[in-house]
Simulated scan of single mutants.
Amino acid sequence: MYTSSLADAPAIREPQHAPVAHLVRGGVTEGVHHGSVVVLDTDGRVGLRLGDIEAAFYPRSALKPVQAVAMVRAGLPLDGELLSLAAASHSGEERHLAGTRRILELAGLTEDDLRNVPDLPFGPAVRDAWVREGRPPGRLAQNCSGKHAAMLYTCRLNGWPLDSYLDPEHPLQQAIAEIVEDLTGQRIARVTVDGCGAPLFSVSLHGLARAAARITTAAPGTPEARLADAVRRHPELASGSGRDVAALMRAVPGLLAKDGFEGVEVAALPDGRAIAVKIADGADRARVPVAAAALAHAGVDPALLTEFAGEPLLGGGVPVGRVRPVRSLTPTSWPACA
């Protein structure tokens, strides 16, 4: 049942994004990335806002931890690597494929029961090897297959229909929608279809940050804490080797972080500090340094974040600049632009 204490759904409007990062080359601003950023303090209050943090938007895969919590609340018995994989946008490495097969085996199902779209692996090196070997796109290789396998397992445990598990009216998706609203603290603005075929719920950037904070501050043993522990202990299962979001969790003790397509990132610490970022043009080159700068603004030691300050821009093979967060986000210790 939905609670009466939920805030209204965020307004569906053109977001009033603001500049969040500058592309600086040779001391000249060559480009500007717009977006929105929210930083929450330990008490849940907004410590920083840039752009439009209350407009409806799609978190894309950054919502997967919330979806995984909903499945655990519905009885999904996974922990550790397999629970991390249930919240993954994985690279398609063999460990991801093997883990997804294991979840399906536990449910008494096979790859043929998946309803996500067939695709090549998301990780560039894995994808290149896949193509060289002449392997076609597959449902197991698609980056959301762990989530879909977990959805099927949850359905099997609850006696819910399997073939229609992606229908927004399906009991599984209704259960997920309820937890999305519970953890974000607001009603869903709109439901559409994500790239993998699963329902996608529109909330606000502020709501996404609240949900992450709710997960990381939950009591030990709760579905939220189980999910946070699994992803933090096995970040490469939720992403892949060399992925920035896994490296960020390795670098910052206790951090839970998840990225999403179209320039989305959310992260939260065990004390409730949280950040959420949306880059308007979807550029990862801005997402990574802006998210890192937001974490520094939240109080994370900037020395832990220098790896995520943005790749240098090269001119003739020599660094001549970088993507730099705007001044209101940038710590004094951030690498200088050329």
Rank of each mutant, 00 (worst) to 15 (best):
Y2T: 14
P10A: 01
E14S: 13
T29Y: 01
E30M: 11
H34T: 13
R45M: 07
R45A: 14
G47S: 14
L48D: 05
R49V: 02
F57N: 00
V69G: 13
G75I: 03
G75Y: 09
A98V: 13
I103C: 09
L120D: 06
P124A: 04
P124F: 02
R127M: 10
R127W: 01
D128F: 01
W130P: 00
R139G: 00
R139W: 01
L152A: 13
L152Y: 06
E169T: 14
P171Y: 09
P171E: 10
Q174K: 14
I179H: 06
D182C: 03
G185T: 04
V191M: 01
C196F: 07
F201D: 02
H206C: 01
A209R: 00
A213K: 02
A219R: 15
E224L: 03
A230K: 11
V231H: 07
H234Y: 14
A246W: 02
A246F: 04
D259R: 08
G260C: 09
G260K: 04
E265A: 14
L269S: 07
R273P: 03
A274F: 03
A274M: 03
I279E: 06
P289T: 11
V290M: 04
V290F: 02
A296Q: 04
L304V: 02
L313I: 15
V318Q: 13
R322G: 13
V326G: 10
S328N: 03
P335W: 09
A338V: 09
